[in-house]
Simulated scan of single mutants.
Amino acid sequence: MILSPDQMILFVIWGIPINATIFYTWIVMAMLTGVSMLLTRNLRADVPPNRWRTALEVIVQSIQSQIEEIAQGPSRHLLYFAGTLFLFVAVSNLLLVVPGFEPPTSSLSTTTALALSVLVAVPLFGITSRGLGGYLKTYLQPSFIMLPFNIISEASRGISLAIRLYGNIMSGAVIAAILLTVAPFFFPVIMDVLGLLTGMIQAYIFAILATVYISSATKPPHPSTTQKDKS
C-alpha cells in the first residue's frame, strides 16, 4: 500500500520525475488561481453584485473576522497569507473525494513546506510590525537566559504544524484503506463524508495556528514591559 503520493511517479519531464504530490499541487494551485480570476474579473463598484460575488464576499469576510478576532485588531495583512493557507489546505483535502486524486497534504514534504512558510512569515511580519530591533528583543524576554529556549520554541512550532497536519491526513487515509478492505461497498460513503469534515477542520486549525503565531510576533510590547525598559 502506498502511504504517500511522493512514492507515485506519474510521468517524467526532461529527465525529472514528477510525482503525485507535485502534480496534484499544481492542480490545486491552478484551480484556485482560475476560480479566483473567474470570480473577480468583474469585481468593481460599478458592477452590481451577483450570487457568486456575494458568496465570495461572505467567505472572505468570514475569514477576515476570524483573523481579526485572534489578532485583536485590524489585520488585513494576515488575511492574504492565512486565507491562502486555508484555501489551499481545504481544497486539497476536499478533493480527496474525487476518485484517483491524491491530496498533496497527505505528503510530509507538502506539510513541511507549509510549516516552513509559516516559520518564515513569523519573523517577516514581526520585523515589519515592530522593526528589527523590537522583534529580536522578543527572544530575550523575560530575560536573556531564555534566548535558546525561545529559539527552540520557535522551531518546534513548525515541526508541530507539519507533523500535525500530515498525521491527521495520513491517519484518515490509512483508516479508509483498512475499512475498504473490510467492507468495500459500505464504508466509502462514510469515509467521504468524514474526509470532507476533517479536511475542513484541519484547514481551519492550520490557518488559525498560523494566525496565532504571526499575531504573537506582531503584537506591540506589553505596556509594563515598555515602562520597565524605559526605567
Score class of each variant (00 low, 15 high):
Phe88Tyr: 13
Val97Gln: 02
Ser92Ile: 05
Ser107Val: 07
Phe88Met: 07
Val91Asp: 00
Asn93Arg: 09
Leu96Lys: 04
Phe86Ser: 00
Val98Lys: 05
Glu102Lys: 08
Leu116Val: 15
Val98Trp: 07
Phe101Cys: 01
Thr112Arg: 15
Leu108Val: 12
Gln66Tyr: 06
Ser106Lys: 09
Val97Gly: 01
Leu95Asp: 01
His77Val: 09
Gln66Met: 11
Phe88Ile: 09
Leu108Phe: 15
Gln72Trp: 12
Leu87Trp: 14
Leu78Tyr: 08
Ser75Ala: 15
Phe86Gly: 00
Ser92Tyr: 02
Ala82Phe: 02
Ser75Phe: 10
Glu69Tyr: 09
Ile63Val: 09
Leu114Ile: 14
Val98Met: 07
Phe81Arg: 06
Leu95Ala: 05
Leu78Arg: 05
Ser92His: 06
His77Gln: 13
Leu87Pro: 01
His77Glu: 14
Leu96Thr: 06
Gln66Pro: 00
Gly100Cys: 02
Pro104Val: 03
Ile63Asn: 00
Ser75Thr: 12
Val98Arg: 06
Ser109Cys: 07
Ser109Ala: 15
Leu78Met: 12
Pro104Cys: 08
Ala71Asn: 07
Leu78Phe: 12
Leu95Val: 07
Ser65Asn: 08
Val98Thr: 10
Leu79Ile: 12
Ile70Tyr: 03
Asn93Leu: 07
Pro74Phe: 14
Pro103Phe: 09
Thr112Asn: 11
His77Tyr: 11
Arg76Ile: 15
Thr112Pro: 02
Leu78Thr: 06
